[in-house]
Design a protein around this nucleic acid. Structure first.
Lengths: 347, 347
DNA sequence: CGGTCGATGGCTGACGTCGAGCTAGACCCT
DNA sequence: AGGGTCTAGCTCGACGTCAGCCATCGACCG
């Protein structure tokens, strides 16, 4: 109590001396000599007060450094002004970029953002959702762990606006935002075919969080009506996984001349493995990644990749959530975001 | 269970039917037939109830899916169970790694984490601190924008536990956690000298958020009593800045054979520029970076670097904040974290 | 000149939780 | 048996805010 004069002096000219307690609406009212209700009206821009009064109140607010206690406000309005961002994998650069942009989008909406990662653990995700719910968030953005549909729907039932990133299987009651990976892979395949590649391998992973993934139906169409020979293998979504994937492809198809990787780390691994096997990139084998991570631009050769624009995703997600908060209960169509092929040196 | 029938309606057998309303402590009490206070005791593990009552209450909690409203709890206990992480620059991989680890550390403490970036804008940082304060966070971790000492002290005065990452100038009242960059640079310089380098350039930036930075006093000592010739230039902390820095160094010292960069992006730029000028790395010029970003391991040649361990930082920061929350007002010594030299191919 | 209306501003009761203080009964010990 | 101690449970505010309703006052209209 009555402490915190740690350091001498300091401004503190204005009456607000007390350090243990923050000023409340009542303090402001008392100082100005009006009723708390009036201060509340001014703070919330409700109208119903004279300009003079308003000014005097604003001055007092400034002087006392008053800020409304959002806990108290949230308790009564049932709007806490917070949202949660729940991601599945923080080693994924795109996820980080999303966090960065989302934080920005939400600040523009005047919301504060909780941030948490499930690390692809369903129980952990459950705990996070629980905790956010307890904190009365106005909504959540979730990159879900696999097969966690029920968890999410559980909260949707309880009335929590939830926006899911990616193509959550069976999700009918949640709003989905995803990238047009199908289109992206069509672009990439088109590029490989255009540059004369005819034996194309795809290194897919079990699933991509951002949309439908190679190895699932969509990708097949891209090759339709082409004379290319194709081969699919699956790998861990890591550099070493990519290397293993390429080895496997070369074994299955020694004439391999093009590779499509499900993300850039995999692509980097594939490039390294190809070079280790004496194949030149892109002369002998073209490699195309996905996500446009920063590293992709600095490796040698620089990576041709399908760019997933994180800030585009963040913006879409924030808008979708805002819509859900403003008009709860409305069924919404999935949002599909365009992607772009960035041609660099590797393909 | 017995629910999660994709569509509306669904089971909902148990009383909790209302979707707009969440169960409260009172609901639980009513269901069990005890006073709310008793339920509160059980929820908070206060003791003072029979095992039977406890079990009946727990069952009811489970059945009603009751979770305490943290807003209400925070309002009265003045502990919201939340902390804020405020960073200055989300393009810095170390910052992202810190966010990832911090989020983890805080979850272990049972806290939820707000996340926001000031993007090196003092006004924005001010707004963020303001907002976090309104949300009654229990404490904040801040990687401050330059010269924002007063902003922070302002909140410290108001009794907010704040831990600052880095060597904030003039910060006497805030707890600081920083890396031992001095020691790191000594290690790096030692390594360069050991490998026979004698004309060493340093590409520093205006300031590093993580501790004292080359170009400031500390770095000079590392060369003390060596016969090396040294040269300092400053550059933007980016790849292109690093390239420019190296050009400048070569101009000043054509015999340059070792470079110390203030971060890995700068180092990558320096390597590229050196190679463009026909110098081999590391044969002609050794380059050492700082931070150990992911890209550093995949570029060619892979980067020798001073590793700053983000999870170490996150842990230290969480511990420091916890201490500050538990015992407010205690003056604390800065925490200095060890660093490590990772020798790869570039130096 | 009385009535009505608009502009202001005050009073009061929630919101969901915790904490202090209190009441009965049960049990122990002497 | 009686006093003390413990247990299990209750009642009653309080936290800081919002929102519904009413009171006041001057102005305007008929």
């Amino acid at each position: 109590m009555a402490d915190v004069e740690l350091d001498p002096a300091g401004g503190m000219a204005a009456g607000s001396g007390r350090s243990g307690k923050a000023a409340t609406l009542h303090d402001v009212a008392r100082k100005v000599g009006v009723a708390p209700r009036t201060v509340s009206r001014v703070v919330n821009d409700e109208g119903g007060y004279s300009e003079t009064t308003r000014q005097r109140i604003l001055d007092a607010i400034e002087e006392l450094r008053y800020r409304p206690n959002l806990l108290a406000r949230g308790l009564i309005t049932r709007r806490s002004g917070t949202v949660g961002l729940v991601v599945n994998d923080l080693t994924d650069p795109l996820v980080l970029a999303l966090a960065a942009s989302a934080q920005d989008s939400f600040r523009e909406q005047g919301r504060s953002m909780f941030f948490a990662s499930s690390d692809d653990d369903a129980d952990r995700q459950g705990a996070i959702l629980q905790s956010l719910w307890s904190h009365a968030v106005d909504g959540m953005i979730v990159i879900p762990v696999r097969d966690s549909y029920r968890q999410l729907v559980d909260y949707v039932r309880r009335g929590v606006p939830i926006v899911v990133v990616g193509d959550l299987v069976g999700a009918q009651n949640v709003t989905r935002v995803m990238f047009d990976l199908d289109g992206g892979f069509r672009l990439a395949v088109g590029h490989l075919l255009d540059t004369g590649r005819r034996s194309i391998g795809v290194i897919g992973s079990a699933a991509s969080p951002y949309g439908r993934c190679p190895g699932q139906e969509g990708i097949g169409n891209a090759f339709f009506a082409s004379d290319a020979r194709t081969q699919l293998v699956r790998a861990e979504p890591t550099v070493s996984g990519g290397a293993a994937g390429l080895e496997q492809l070369l074994e299955l198809r020694p004439d391999l001349d093009g590779v499509l990787a499900c993300n850039d780390m995999v692509a980097i691994g594939a490039v390294a493995a190809a070079q280790a096997r004496g194949r030149r990139v892109p002369e002998d084998i073209a490699v195309i990644g996905c996500n446009d991570i920063d590293s992709g631009a600095v490796v040698t050769p620089s990576l041709t990749t399908i760019r997933l624009d994180a800030s585009l995703l963040a913006g879409a997600v924030a808008v979708a959530l805002q819509g859900l908060i403003d008009e709860p209960g409305v069924q919404r169509d999935p949002v599909v975001l365009p992607v772009e092929l960035v041609v660099r040196d590797s393909g």
